[in-house]
């Protein structure tokens, strides 16, 4: 097997060009290693960009957040926990797998695997993230998250391309609060059965002026629940509103998930909503 361990973006581009159709870029490798071991993957070349310093960066400026492809879940949860508008990212990153997984797994790796249960998929959707895609010619192209996920394990990424970073527009969400929560099979170290991210802007009068809500692990790709968002606009964050949002979320889950899980996920959505909004309230006070 060929292998490349580029230390600059130029070398990464060259590796992408040389690696060929069946080359595979790995970041943390926490999922891909299992596939390799089970003989389910047989790449012609492995490319590991972990030695490119720029890819490890998490850059938070006034108007944007940029997360390098090699920034780990542990680093993300530490860096963003105290930033209200991005705390949902910290919630999600801090809940991925175990401490061992979080010290290697990356947000970008999670997006590129595109598992419907991936915790970062509803997060990317929540922030309308933009993925920076590098090709073998060294060209960087922006791909919107809404164009990126095509289905389980399927993305818009072509052979010979790699995601080097994702960006979120901070200006659009400055002053907002956010939270993410998931329900798995146990409270810790579990694949998500439903994940939910919420971003809220609340004005001085305590009224929700804008809202975003996304769900993961329900359909093949993360979904944004516009109906719930519309419902929240112009309302205070109170029990009556929460009940209505919960009903919409439950219905969305019901309509999108597989029959085998329908009863459970539809019911459990209620608990999930309650937990996410409890977290938001805590963050607002």
């Amino acid at each position: 097997m060929n292998w490349y361990t580029p230390v600059t973006m130029e070398e990464l581009a060259a590796a992408l060009a040389q690696g060929g159709e069946s080359s595979r870029v790995i970041a943390g490798g926490t999922d891909y290693t299992i596939h390799l071991r089970q003989g389910k993957a047989n790449p012609g070349a492995l490319i590991y960009p972990g030695r490119i310093p720029a890819l490890r960066e998490i850059m938070l400026t006034e108007d944007s957040l940029r997360i390098g492809a090699m920034a780990t879940m542990a680093e993300l949860s530490l860096a963003l926990a105290a930033v209200p508008e991005f705390a949902a990212i910290a919630d999600a990153a801090g809940g991925v797998g175990s401490p061992q997984i979080r010290s290697k797994a990356t947000l970008v790796g999670n997006l590129c695997n595109a598992s419907p249960a991936g915790d970062m998929l509803p997060i990317a959707k929540l922030y309308d993230m933009v993925l920076e895609v590098l090709d073998g010619n060294g060209r960087l192209t922006d791909v919107s998250v809404s164009d990126f996920f095509l289905g389980p394990g399927k993305t818009a990424l072509q052979p010979g391309q790699a995601v080097t970073a994702v960006r979120a527009n901070r200006t659009a969400v400055t002053g907002w609060v956010s939270a993410f929560h998931k329900i798995g099979f146990r409270s810790y170290v579990s694949i998500a059965r439903i994940g939910m991210g919420v971003l809220l802007h609340i004005d001085a009068a305590g009224v929700i002026s804008d809202a975003r809500l996304t769900l993961g692990a329900v359909a093949n790709v993360p979904i944004r629940v516009y109906a719930a968002e519309r419902l929240m606009q112009g309302k205070p964050l109170d029990r009556a509103m929460l009940e209505k949002v919960t009903a919409v979320v439950s219905r969305t889950v019901h309509d999108n998930c597989r029959p085998a899980n329908r009863l459970y996920k539809t019911e459990a959505a209620r608990g999930l909503c309650a937990d996410v909004f409890a977290q938001l309230e805590k963050r607002m006070s």
Binding site: G28, G29, T33, L36, Y48, P99, Q100, I101, S103, K104
Partner: peptide, 13 residues
């Protein structure tokens, strides 16, 4: 200094 799984870490890394 960070805990990792040796079973999920490859030589290339």
């Amino acid at each position: 200094g960070e805990p990792i799984h040796a079973c999920l870490t490859l030589a290339i890394q």
